[in-house]
Amino acid sequence: MLKEYREFIARGNVVDLAVGIIMGAAFTGIVNSLVKDVIMPPIGRLTGGVDFRDMFINLGSGDYPSLDAATKAGAATINYGVFINTVINFIIVSIAVFFLVRAVNRLRRIQEQPEAVKAVAPPPPPPRNEQLLEEIRDLLKTRA
C-alpha cells in the first residue's frame, strides 16, 4: 500500500495539481489585497467614504456601528458588503485566469506552428547527380 501511495504521489498529474493549488492560494491572497487595499478605497471614496466591509443588514434589535461590532455581539446579520467584495474578487480572478489561459494558448499555437510550416514547406531540391541525369535525359529527348 505504501508503494502504491508513493507511485500515486510521484505521478506528474498529482504534483501539477498540488502546484496549482499552492499557486492558487497565493494568488488569492494577492487578489484579496488588491481588492481590499487598492480597488475598494477609491470606490469607497467615490461613494462618500462608504466601507463595503461594513455594509450589512442587522436582523436583530441592536444598533451596531460596524460589522465587527455586530459579529462580536453575536448579532445575526446579512453581510452584503462582504458579498460585494467577494464578487469583485471573483471578477478580478476570472479576468486574470482568462489572460493566463489566453497566453498559454498563444504559446501552444506558436509551438505547434513550426510543425505545420514543415508540412506545407516545399520539398528540398533533388541531389546534384539527379539534376544532371534529368538534364541529360531532357537533352536526349530533344535530339531524338
Rank of each mutant, 00 (worst) to 15 (best):
V38M: 07
R11Y: 03
A26H: 02
E112N: 13
L67F: 08
A103G: 15
V101S: 06
L132Q: 13
Y5R: 09
V104G: 05
A119Y: 02
P126C: 05
T71V: 12
F27E: 03
R143V: 05
I39A: 13
L17C: 10
K36L: 06
G12Q: 09
A96D: 02
S61K: 13
E112M: 08
A18G: 12
A70M: 08
V31G: 00
Y80N: 03
G24D: 06
R45N: 09
I9Q: 07
N129E: 14
G49K: 11
K72C: 00
L2P: 00
Q131K: 12
V31R: 01
A69K: 10
A119D: 07
K141R: 14
A96R: 04
R108P: 00
A119I: 13
F99K: 10
N89R: 12
T142Y: 13
M23W: 12
G62W: 14
R6L: 14
N129R: 12
V50Y: 03
G12I: 07
A26Y: 10
R108K: 09
Q113G: 00
I95N: 02
I136F: 08
I88N: 05
N13V: 11
S33Y: 08
G60D: 15
A10W: 14
V35M: 06
L140K: 15
M23L: 15
R6C: 02
R6W: 11
R106A: 12
V15A: 11
T77F: 08
A119M: 07
N32F: 10
Q113D: 03
